[in-house]
Write a protein that binds this DNA or RNA. Sequence first.
RNA 1: CGGGGAGUGGCGCAGCUUGGUAGCGCGCCUGCUUUGGGAGCAGGAGGUCGAGGGUUCAAGUCCCUUCUCCCCGACCA
Length: 469
Amino acid sequence: MAKGSVLTPQAEDFPRWYQDVLAKAELAENGPVRGTMVIRPYGYSIWERIQAEIDARIKECGAQNAYFPLFIPESYLRREAEHVEGFSPELAVVTHAGGEELAEPVVVRPTSETVIGEYMAKWIQSYRDLPLLLNQWANVVRWELRPRLFLRTSEFLWQEGHTAHVSQADASAYAMRIHHEVYDDFLRDVMAVPVQLGIKTTRERFAGATNTMTCEGMMRDGKALQMATSHELGQNFARAFDIKYLGDDGAEHLCFTTSWGASTRLVGGLIMAHGDDQGIVVPPRLAPIQAAVLCVRDQPELAEVAERLSGELKDAGVRVHVDHRSGSFGRRVTDWELKGVPVRVEIGPRDLAEGLVTLARRDSGEKQTVSIESVAAVLPRILEEIQAELLASSIRRRDAATAEVSTLDEAMEAGRDGFARIPWSAIGEDGEATLNAKTLSVRCLQRPDGSLPESADEEDLVAVVARSY
RNA sequence: CGGGGAGUGGCGCAGCUUGGUAGCGCGCCUGCUUUGGGAGCAGGAGGUCGAGGGUUCAAGUCCCUUCUCCCCGACCA
């Protein structure tokens, strides 16, 4: 019979809930070395869906995938002053290999601007080679003092795009395009997470960038999570790595470069943006399993129907999984709830006698019985409904936890468990330091209407203040 | 690095004050009964008590050393 809740309730202890759900939904666990993460098959299947969606959008924007090495000469990092300063505290450096001390230490990439810059310089000769649009899927290492599975681990998986352009305007436009058409679009349309778009303050900017754009999502505990970033690097890296082209004017020019990334942190964002006390909730468009088919009892007639329905659903384009496990019905139901599968198709003897099956929605808990013949037609519609409802409820929750304020004190109050929007002019760099002292920060600067500014110099920018992960 | 906790079967914990045959819950295995929201009963497997040293007839328990992990503050996707 039913027992107490499987997870620590969110309201009681949100970090504990997060750890519980990672374990119970079989998403990930700690690796043997502090800060490392083992991503379990179900967790990884979610990441694979994220990759597929983001990868398709990146290619739509014209970038091509390539792969650069994990090991980078330490000297490369040093060529860009701000870059090395920003990353040196979290670098993993290999000093010994092959049984000997290395002549030049090798760093494990914390990001690949430097190596890629070196090769861009080699590949780019003329303006006809531009823009050069590259992306790579890789692991990177940033030694973390306070790791949290998916959110902040010493090694993580990500996608990093690197591009080179003829002009500031081109570079800027492309970075912005990626930000809108890859990240914002994916987060909203697939992950059902509405984000605050904006640019980072100088303090929060990527090491070596001239401008950093961010997508800030709100988690269920009111804290912000940076879910993707895009950087304009100006000519900083072009200068450091000599990325030049011969223009149609016959003269040499330095390129303008960009970089942009999204990581396995998104899995953490998914968990915390939609999860509830029953487990995680995966939006249908993202879900590796959109429908789990399970039999109430272990009877051949039921299993037969399950197989038939599974085939029909596959034909209808639904990602379906038949649960063949034995064991109590309640146990299996709870498991799919923990894993956030959007719809359960439950086949029981009583329903079957009437030619019916039960469909149970993960988002609302709502159940309905439908005829067996209609399942394949009805289910895709329900999935789209769930997708829309998840986005709508996320927007409602975000709006309810977002306050428009005008003073620093009000921002510090409202930012404690939500977003506070305040004129940037009311904070300034001094105010930003004050916020940081209170574990708050300026997540981004945006226009009053919430849109993405072109630069921090625009008039009347609004700061989004919050606690963050 | 600063402050606070904890190391005991796979997981979560008790036992330590007052040394004396290593326990509980969950999970796991077998069997039977079950299965419409984490089932019940019976039987069973599984532990050098983080590591090293010391005290003692005897150490999970007392003493010293050491390692690791977790939580809270200065950095980050």
